[in-house]
Computed example of a mutant assay.
Amino acid sequence: MATLYTCNQRDRAAAVHPCGKAAKALRDAGHAFEIETVGGYKALGFTRRGKRDRIRELTGQEDVPVFVDDDGGVVHGTKTIVAWAKAHPAA
């Protein structure tokens, strides 16, 4: 199953929070996915140490949201995920 990696906000506050916006766009496009949260906070970089290794492995950076589709394709960043979801509606 596809996975959306998010911060601890998960898919809350879809109108304002980057992770929520990505989740909403994917759902609106009909995608099924599980949410996996990663620890740490952007404003407190030291809180990320060792908690975002998977994100770094997938994207070369530590920011979320990151979406991994059913085929293993990786899309990261809110705007990119939203655009991808619009361009790739679920069948």
Rank of each mutant, 00 (worst) to 15 (best):
M1F: 12
T3R: 14
T3H: 15
L4M: 14
L4P: 15
L4D: 14
Y5G: 05
T6M: 11
C7A: 09
Q9Y: 15
Q9E: 15
Q9K: 15
R10D: 10
R10L: 10
R10N: 11
R10A: 10
A13V: 13
A14I: 06
A14C: 09
A14R: 04
A15Y: 03
A15E: 06
V16I: 12
V16Y: 11
V16N: 11
V16M: 12
H17F: 14
H17R: 15
P18G: 06
P18S: 08
K21Q: 07
A23R: 05
K24P: 14
K24H: 13
A25K: 01
A25Y: 02
A25S: 05
L26Q: 05
L26R: 06
L26V: 07
A29N: 02
A29P: 06
G30S: 07
H31I: 04
A32R: 12
F33P: 14
E34M: 06
I35C: 13
E36K: 14
E36F: 12
E36V: 10
T37W: 11
T37G: 13
T37L: 11
T37K: 13
T37N: 13
V38Q: 03
V38D: 04
V38W: 00
Y41W: 15
Y41V: 15
K42D: 13
L44D: 09
L44H: 09
G45T: 14
G45I: 13
F46K: 10
F46E: 14
T47F: 02
T47H: 01
T47W: 04
R48W: 00
R48T: 03
R49P: 09
R49T: 09
R49A: 07
R49N: 08
G50R: 04
G50E: 04
G50D: 05
K51S: 08
K51L: 08
K51P: 11
R52M: 13
D53V: 12
R54L: 02
R54S: 05
R54I: 06
R54D: 06
I55S: 03
I55R: 03
R56N: 15
E57G: 02
E57S: 03
E57H: 02
L58N: 00
L58C: 00
L58T: 00
L58E: 00
T59D: 01
G60H: 04
G60S: 06
G60W: 02
Q61D: 10
Q61P: 12
D63L: 08
P65K: 08
P65R: 09
P65Y: 10
P65T: 07
V66K: 01
F67C: 02
F67I: 00
F67L: 00
F67R: 02
V68R: 07
D69H: 04
D70K: 12
D71R: 11
D71W: 09
G72H: 03
G73A: 07
G73L: 07
V74S: 01
V74W: 02
V74Y: 03
V75P: 05
V75Q: 05
V75H: 03
H76I: 12
H76V: 13
H76S: 15
G77K: 14
T80D: 14
I81Q: 01
I81S: 00
V82I: 07
V82P: 08
W84V: 08
W84K: 06
W84G: 12
A85R: 00
K86Q: 07
K86A: 10
A87Y: 07
A87R: 08
A87Q: 09
H88C: 07
H88F: 04
A90V: 01
A90R: 04
A90N: 01
A90G: 05
A90L: 00
A91N: 09
A91I: 08
